[in-house]
Design a protein around this nucleic acid. Structure first.
Lengths: 239, 239
DNA sequence: GATAGCTTTTGACATAGCTCAAACATGGTT
DNA sequence: AACCATGTTTGAGCTATGTCAAAAGCTATC
């Protein structure tokens, strides 16, 4: 399952031709300036399921935009416990944790075969000084991660299992929708274990809660295939 | 307790003469460039306990550096629940949540009488384009908040009450130490309620756990006065 | 310096979610 | 096609933490 090549395949990328333009870093950047961003996004790397994009402790080289596929990021605690800090899908940016000290503080793993665009951070900062819209957008993206993390803290700090899982499913739904996929039927790319870890609950509780949602007619689950049948009532769990 | 003046007192500030230089935004910025940062940090505002620095929903005007005193930030959920997302002390920056959408997503309240330096964000970005070290430092500060939030997610997602509280006390201790105060004896500025909210537990559990730590000889608590008696064993709770 | 309203502590009891365990399903590999 | 490792479901009993309640301690204001 691990990629045995130390240097995954690379290829040229084009932001202007990319269908993720509206979800990714170029969002909100003037047409004419995208070429400059593209010039530094020189490589696209591919990953097999289970491959690491970066490890906690490794030096910052670049930010990474998911081109296709699915990743999870997790931090490792001294006591050996691992906490999933997020799941990233197409257009989402990883690696901002490393800007603080130039060392990654979390690790990123592909949950399925995936492609990633590499944005060398030094060059990104440099270009940001020339293009205010790019600078602004980079700031927005970092701030979004802060806001998202605050939301997760709210979830972990004050919600019950049912509320957490409802919020999780609706969040996935909404993100799939934003990418043009069905908001109501999708495949989970992560295990119950990983969902539970992210949501601060045990895999058995995830499984039981999904079963309960299914019995209540809110969703249908069969392994990784989820269908949201009653988004409104699901939403009412935590609204 | 609320400040009845709609415009809190203002005063000129000086970064170069500020004893927080090493903990605050100017950290790592070339001596010669600090004057330029100072030029835009035009006002220092004072707050009474309970005063709001900004509210969730209000527009981004500036980032705020705590000059003196203590703040908490919290997000509000649709269901009325409030989650404390952090406690900020001298030198720490608030307001980065608003960069994403130009609207604050959390609120900041003074926990004691406090002073704050205002950094108009537009001007900060503008200056960042001229001073790479400032740009870099702003990025580092935003990234640090991401890393900190990941740490809180780990705490909320996987630690027991004792571990959370031990981590919390040691974190405060370390931050006081970084500011030249005693790492072993300090005053809590927040209530058990607020601690519990931040740590995802009820105030009774906070109180009981503190009592247990005290009985075990790890700390001494009398209301808000805390003394850490055995930092090593306290650390062993969650290391 | 008395009063009123918070805040904290502690106890007794309730419960959501954890642990352990067993059976079953799935999908990748030989 | 069969096998094995991995993931999922469900049950039964347990425990950490929440809930409710009462008393005592602070602090701020008049």
């Amino acid at each position: 399952m691990k990629n045995i090549f130390s240097f995954p395949p690379r290829a040229q990328t084009s932001c202007s031709a990319c269908n993720l333009r509206k979800n990714c870093l170029p969002a909100g950047i003037a047409e004419g300036d995208i070429a400059q961003l593209e010039a530094l996004t020189h490589v696209k790397r591919t990953f097999r399921r289970g491959d690491y994009l970066f490890h906690s402790g490794s030096p910052l080289r670049a930010l990474y935009a998911v081109r296709s596929g699915f990743f999870k990021t997790h931090v490792l605690h001294a006591n050996g416990h691992e906490q999933v800090t997020g799941f990233q899908m197409a257009g989402e940016i990883m690696g901002m944790d490393a800007i603080s000290t130039d060392i990654h503080t979390c690790s990123a793993v592909a949950l399925e075969d995936s492609e990633v665009c590499e944005l060398p951070f030094g060059k990104l900062e440099e270009l940001g000084r020339k293009l205010p819209t790019l600078q602004r957008h980079l700031h927005r993206i970092m701030s979004s991660e802060i806001v998202r993390d605050h939301g997760t803290m709210l979830l972990l700090g004050s919600m019950h299992a049912e509320e957490r899982l409802a919020a999780f499913l609706l969040n996935l739904s909404q993100r799939f929708a934003a990418r043009g996929y069905s908001p109501s039927a999708f495949q989970l790319r992560m295990t119950r274990q990983e969902i539970g870890n992210y949501l601060g609950m045990k895999l058995e509780t995830v499984s039981r809660t999904l079963s309960r949602f299914q019995k209540a007619g809110l969703i249908s689950v069969r392994n990784k295939a989820v269908e949201i049948l009653d988004a409104n009532n699901l939403r009412s769990f935590f609204a």
